[in-house]
């Protein structure tokens, strides 16, 4: 592909995203008024404190547009929420930006990709902080402060666990990897992580992946049912037992794959090819299911062109044209 062609595709990708957004705006204004609106049911929380002051906040629970309008008609507190509507439109535009890569690399795709990288790194950091560091490290080292600030349900009798100073010190040492001159100190916590992981995996892999795989493989090759010889079960068991053995022979490289061993190893390859074929089939299906999910998001939640969940008040596009087609 020449430079000019690549540039052409990039421009085409950007153009298509812009056209897509323009059509969506037109659709939301002219064809399906309010398309992409997110409705919520509001619940007001009011707490009166001992000193007489009040603490208030509003909780929003997502409801479908149809439910929201019905609730509003019954004078329940439901209304469109601007922030969530903006969020949905943003998610839809980012989705289009990612899809634009199908036409070639372009600035909108790169921007969306940059957002994925930054947001993912921060996302997992936040999860690690609130779900691991706070309950395991901060609650152990500073129970009183953690209870008053983050975890009011922390037991009152919780005491400081001074042994947690060890992982705290190892954590600091691990972060020293970012300092080039003393980065070697991070080998200590790294070695600890690797040592623990090896110890855990040594036992768990032998127990769960080795022994537990052998047990169910030891099956009778000739199965006798209530009516005598059971051909179907016997054939299935033969395929399972001999297939597993054949694959293992293929993985055994200490003996040259020649003669009888070679033939068995070759049948092992056939079994593995069937396994990989099934894995491939499932991968394709999984991705197509994800793709269908994204299209459903765009055409149902955003544009209201389809309505499989019966969530929109306006008649969806396909439902509108269906009688015309028939």
């Amino acid at each position: 592909m020449t430079h000019a062609t690549r540039r052409g595709n990039a421009n085409f990708g950007v153009l298509l995203v812009l056209i897509g957004v323009a059509i969506a705006v037109l659709n939301a204004v002219a064809f399906h008024p309010g398309a992409g609106t997110q409705w919520t049911k509001r619940t007001e929380h009011v707490h009166t404190l001992e000193d007489g002051s009040e603490v208030r906040w509003t909780e929003h629970e997502a409801v479908s547009v149809k439910e929201g309008r019905e609730m509003a008609a019954l004078e329940e507190d439901a209304a469109p929420l601007f922030a969530r509507t903006v969020g949905l439109w943003g998610a839809a535009i980012l989705t289009l930006c990612i899809f634009s890569f199908l036409l070639g690399d372009n600035p909108l795709y790169k921007a969306a990709e940059a957002i994925v990288v930054g947001a993912s790194a921060a996302y997992w950091m936040v999860i690690g902080f609130w779900e691991t560091m706070v309950p395991n490290l901060l609650a152990g080292l500073f129970p009183g402060w953690t209870r008053d600030t983050f975890m009011p349900k922390l037991a009152l009798e919780a005491e400081t666990d001074y042994l947690l100073l060890i992982p705290l010190a190892l954590s600091v040492l691990l972060l020293l990897r970012l300092a080039p001159k003393i980065g070697w100190i991070s080998r200590w916590p790294t070695a600890f992580i690797i040592g623990v992981f090896c110890g855990l995996r040594f036992i768990s892999s032998l127990e769960a992946d080795f022994l537990s795989q052998i047990g169910p493989t030891i099956k009778p090759l000739i199965v006798m049912g209530e009516n005598g010889f059971d051909l179907e079960s016997s054939f299935s068991n033969i395929v399972l037992v001999l297939g597993t053995l054949a694959c293992l022979v293929y993985f055994f490289f200490s003996v040259e794959h020649k003669g009888a061993v070679g033939k068995v190893a070759r049948s092992g390859i056939w079994m593995l090819m069937i396994t990989f074929g099934a894995a491939f089939g499932y991968t394709v299906m999984g991705r197509i299911a994800l793709l269908a999910g994204r299209f459903e998001f765009l055409f149902d939640d955003w544009l209201w062109l389809i309505d499989p969940k019966d969530a929109h008040p306006a008649q969806a596009f396909l439902q509108t044209i269906a009688p015309m087609l028939t």
């Binding site: 990288v117 999860i127 902080f129 691991t132 560091m133 947690l164 190892l170 954590s171 691990l174 623990v196």
Partner: peptide, 21 residues
């Protein structure tokens, strides 16, 4: 205890990743 320490260090590894980014 060692498993808890391991989990803490694994969480710190995310901070290290963020710092590196």
């Amino acid at each position: 205890k060692t498993t808890v320490w391991f989990n803490i260090l694994a969480a710190v590894a995310f901070i290290l990743g963020g710092g590196n980014l």
